[in-house]
Amino acid sequence: MQHDELAQANAPLIDLFGRHVNYLRVSVTDRCDFRCFYCMAENMNFLPKREVLSLEELDRLCSSFVSLGVKRLRLTGGEPLVRKDIMTLFGSLSRHLDSGALEELTLTTNGSQLKRYASELAALGVKRINVSLDSLREDRFKEITRWGRFDQVMDGIEAALAAGIKLKLNAVALRGVNDDEYDEMIRFCHQRGMDVTFIETMPMGEIDHERLDMYLPLSELKRDLAQSWTLEPSAHKTGGPASYVTVKETGGRVGFITPMTHNFCESCNRVRVTCTGTLYMCLGQEDAADLRAPLRASESDGPLTEAILSAIARKPKGHDFIIDRDNNRPSIGRHMSVTGG
């Protein structure tokens, strides 16, 4: 490696606002075995396979970020566990855990494939998983996911817990859909030693369902929870954007991710890469960098590293999420399944 390449490889990922980017979320596929109505249209047009990074390219891309100081790596989708041979990628990336270069390798999943993969994931060093689940009622779960099988997800959760993996349930707060279940979700999670995080719905992507009236600010949700529970401030952090409280009655934690009502950008340490190799420095901005071209143009990592460093230098101070009621349009045109959940 020449001197300039060595200097690049050792350069920390610090943006113009002094934020150290040490958390990378990578979508390994835009495909999913669910069709949650707030996330996808029922009849989605998925990307041609030639546009999607190969598992080898994903390994090389992630490893480049690790060499630049990324300490936390989360694989997402779509649904990451439906990607063919995905465990070979987990197996390859686990070498960075063994070397100490990476502190955490994890994923966000809908839970449908956890029964199949939980033991192997645990053996590869995955200690923590986020499971997206918006209802504990089978009929409602079916309405939300369209294609999901509730029993399959429950079996996956039990398999992961049995494998010793720490789980956190993520639920999108939807007014008039699941807003009568939040106390039930807290009990379900805390009885099993799981945290639960509520997420404000984000205006991303054209879908065939009206979302504006479903928007529920988490300040309202938190106020309602305080009627049933004693919520105590918590300093707990996982590296992501959630703020936490501890429920005195259970000892468990509840998280809140509030991109709409509270801009948490001042401490943002994250970037996202899509399954096509597009780097988004901010989930709520359209500015992006193509990493696939330098990745495929050269066997040397020099051009890829240069593209990453150039992009981080453009990481914006904050996002532009809005609920556009006047035009009934999402503020960001791309689907969450493309960007990575």
Rank of each mutant, 00 (worst) to 15 (best):
T274R: 07
M40P: 03
D134S: 08
R329Q: 15
L81W: 04
N269E: 04
V153R: 09
G111Q: 04
A288F: 09
K115G: 14
E249P: 01
T276C: 10
A313K: 15
M44W: 07
L133M: 15
P48N: 05
L279M: 13
P294Y: 12
R146E: 03
Y182T: 06
E249W: 09
N178R: 10
S300W: 13
N269I: 02
F34N: 01
F264D: 00
G318I: 00
D59M: 04
H335A: 11
N170K: 07
F37D: 01
S112T: 13
F17C: 03
L73P: 00
F321G: 07
R140K: 14
G277H: 12
A160Q: 07
L47Y: 10
G125I: 10
I312K: 07
D30M: 03
L68Y: 08
T274N: 05
G240Y: 11
R95H: 13
L121M: 14
S228F: 10
E104D: 13
L309V: 07
T305M: 15
N170Q: 06
L295H: 06
L73S: 08
D155R: 15
V26K: 04
T305E: 12
D208V: 00
M154W: 11
K127G: 01
R253Q: 05
R146C: 02
H20T: 15
L89P: 14
T29H: 05
M204S: 01
L102F: 15
M154V: 15
T261G: 05
F150D: 01
S228W: 08
N328Q: 14
M194C: 08
A311I: 11
V131I: 14
Q8T: 01
F17I: 03
K115R: 13
R60G: 05
I207P: 03
H20V: 12
F321N: 08
T108P: 04
L97D: 07
A123G: 14
V82S: 00
L68W: 10
D179M: 04
L55F: 10
M214R: 11
F65G: 05
S219L: 09
E120N: 09
L105A: 05
G277F: 14
L309C: 10
R329N: 09
I332L: 14
K127I: 00
D290W: 11
S331F: 11
F150E: 01
F321Y: 15
Q8R: 15
G164W: 03
G193E: 06
A289S: 11
A171E: 00
T238I: 13
S63E: 07
R149P: 00
V338I: 13
I332G: 00
L218I: 06
M185L: 12
P217K: 12
G78E: 05
A162I: 02
L16S: 14
R25T: 05
I207E: 00
E138R: 13
P217E: 10
E42T: 09
L231E: 03
N10W: 14
P203L: 10
M87T: 12
D287M: 14
G77S: 02
E51W: 07
L47R: 13
Y244H: 12
F141H: 12
E158Q: 13
